[in-house]
Each structure stands twice: as C-alpha cells, then as structure tokens.
Design a binder for these strands. Structure first.
Lengths: 200, 200
DNA sequence: TGTGTATGTTGACGAGGTCAACATCCTGAG
DNA sequence: CTCAGGATGTTGACCTCGTCAACATACACA
C-alpha cells in the first residue's frame, strides 16, 4: 500500500477501494463498509469512490468477485501439489472450500448474499461463481472417466457437491453448528458421505 | 386482521408487527422493512414498534423465529401422512425443506443471514434453529435403529444432512444454479445421494 | 503550452433508525 | 366508582448514510 503523500490524485483508487473494503469486511462485516469510512481510511473524500463505481453496491460486487477469484485460485492451486488418490484429491478440494469460508466468513457471506448486494443481477458475480462451478464440473468429469464415481450428468453432480460444501460452510459461519463439535471431523464426514453417495 | 377503528391503542401490535413484517419481507425483501413503512401499513407511528421491540433487529429476529417455527411445523406435520418406506419419508423431509425455502426465499434468507440480523447473538433464534436440528436427529436415530443408515453419531449425520439441503436451498435462492435445470430432479438427486452416502 | 477530461472535494438533500418529551388509554387498589 | 401509575402511541429532533450537483485540481495529449 503506497503512501499517499498528499497528492491530489490517489494513483489507483479503484484497486485501493476494493482492497480496503475487503479489509473492512474482514474486520467488521459488510455493514461496517461505509462510503465515508472507506474514504477516511484511504485519505479521500466520501464521494471519491463514485468516480470508480456507480454506487456502493457495485463496489461490494467487485469485492465479492475478488473473493470468488481467490477461492477459485485456492481450489485450483491445490489440485497440483496434492498427493494421494484421485478421490482423495476431490475430498481435499471440498475441505479447502469450507476452510476458505471459515477463514473469511464475512467475505464469504458477501459472495453469496443476494440481500446485501441488492436484488439486481450482477453478471460479473454470476460469472465469477460460474467459473468455480466449471472447475468442479471438470474435476468431476475426470473422476467419472476413471470410474471413481457414478457416471451421471456431471453438472448435476457438481451442484450436489457444491450444495453440500456450501451448506456446511454456511451453517458453520452462521454459528448454527454446536461449537463443541470437531469441525475438521465434520468436514471430513461431509465430504466422505458425499463421495460415497456419488460412487454408484 | 381486525379493524383498527381509530382506537388509540392497537390491541395486539406486537403480533401485528411480526405478521406485517413477514408480509413485507415476502413482497420486497428484508430491506423493504422500514420502521416508518411498517408503521404506515399498520396505521401506527414510526416509533410505536419500540414499545414492543428494543430495536429493528429484534423485530426481524422475531420474524425469523416465526419462520423457523413454520418450517419446523411443516417438516413434522409431513411425517405423519406420508406413505412409502421409511427412507422415503426421510427423503421427503429433505424435499419439503428445500421447497419451503423456494416458496419463502426472503424469509428463508433472513432466518439464516447473520448479517441482516447484526453480529449479536440472538438466543431465541439459536433455539428455534436448534429445535429443527433436534427433530432431524430424532428421525435419523429412528432410521439408524431400523438399520437403514449407518450407525454413526446421529448428530453428525444430522449436520451433514442439514448442510446438504440448506446448501441446495441457499444456492437455488441466490440464483447460483442454472435456471434451466430441473429443480425437482436436482432436489431428488441431492437427497438420494445423501441417503446413499449415509447407508453404510 | 494550453485545454479537455479524469479524478477529487464540498455542500446539500432525503431516507432511515432511534431517543426524549409528551399524550392517551387502561387497569387495579382503595 | 375513581383515579393514579404503568402501558402504549405520537411528534419532533438528531445522527448516520448514500447520493447528486457544482466546483476544484491535475494529468495527458495536441
């Protein structure tokens, strides 16, 4: 984060806004992101963001898209260096997914919360989430070809798998799950049950 | 909904507030619920709700709790009249769960969205969701005793099942799933995969 | 070297949550 | 039966927030 040095122009305010908003979300949730507050933190006026985003929602969408990008990267990157069987790798993917949500709860919530992002459609967001799904479909297709899981429509299976991990992540984040349970074990059981269910 | 007849006091404003807020949520989402708006619809001033709820969040929590009550009732009531095998009944429960969410998307979102309800803990909400979980645990326990699903810790299995249906409901509501897919089929496949995975 | 455009700033407005002071009603003790 | 005090509502005011319009500044390019 470069110093601002009292220059009238910021340099790359747009990127700074997205980064700072993400930080604020981590610290105090999406509601803590205020045009005035974010401006203050960046040494800029409250209306400055409007030169880069049509409204606050657009800024939040950008943050959410960035979140999907990171999650996607994490899931992809993980495939390469992972040892063990192929099924093991799929399970590992599920675990990484949930872990991302637990590490970035407010961000994850923003990514999926249609409410905070207004009812409107945001094609970029749709696309960012879509990229995630496509990757999952690809991986599932590979596993089908190896005969490790049943050969149903890969997209449907991807939806089922996505539902399971997203649901678990969501319940954990919203504290709907007894804090005394062993989270790691629960994650493992979820992915295991899922994979077993998909195996013919 | 009894007439108000210009009496100074409303009669049962608290109940009316919860009911009206729920209606407004269905119509325009949680953000459309405004102290001023809800007051207006009930022929009451903007500050009147504060005689019954400490703040807006408390009112929304009450609405969410009511939602859990209805969902719970739906899942319970459904068990009795359902024909077919025992596993069939469990699957039916999952389907009813998702269907409830699809029929009451904004309400369902409110029930699970920690963001809209502020970060604070709301024990009533926790309890309302807990009742749901307990019911699910009971049903799972019965199925275990009949040997229809593996005898793992019933609570863990309940969490896994809950995750799956909640995740699917959530993704559907947030329009993350291709609108061209056959929703009913997807619901069926999800519950089926889940049950298969839990069967030893 | 200007000048138009991109980028920032300030003032103002309207919406919304909430509190304080005041009004009205209802209920139970005497 | 009456009337005082609590319960329930109302109005005015304040603060925060998103956003727009009018104005200021800086940068890039002809």
């Amino acid at each position: 984060m470069a110093e601002r040095e009292q220059t009238y122009h910021h340099g790359d305010l747009r990127a700074a806004l997205v980064e700072e908003a993400a930080a604020m979300i981590s610290e105090g949730g999406a509601t803590s992101v205020t045009m005035r507050a974010i401006g203050g933190r960046l040494g800029v006026s409250r209306a400055a963001p409007y030169r880069h985003f049509p409204d606050k929602t657009a800024l939040l969408v950008a943050v959410a898209v960035e979140g999907f990008r990171r999650l996607n990267q994490r899931l992809r990157g993980d495939g390469t260096g992972t040892p063990g069987s192929s099924v093991e790798r799929l399970r590992h993917m599920g675990e990484q997914y949930v872990r991302f949500a637990l590490e970035n709860p407010a961000h994850y919530r923003l990514m999926y919360g249609r409410e905070a992002l207004a009812r409107q459609d945001h094609p970029e967001l749709r696309q960012a989430a879509g990229a995630l799904l496509e990757h999952l479909v690809d991986v599932i297709r590979v596993h089908q070809q190896r005969g490790e899981i049943e050969r149903k429509a890969p997209r449907s299976q991807a939806y089922v798998a996505w539902s399971a991990v997203h649901g678990l992540a969501s319940l954990l984040i919203e504290r709907q799950i007894d804090p005394n349970v062993d989270v790691d074990a629960l994650i493992r059981q979820t992915t295991q049950t899922l994979l077993h269910g998909m195996r013919g």
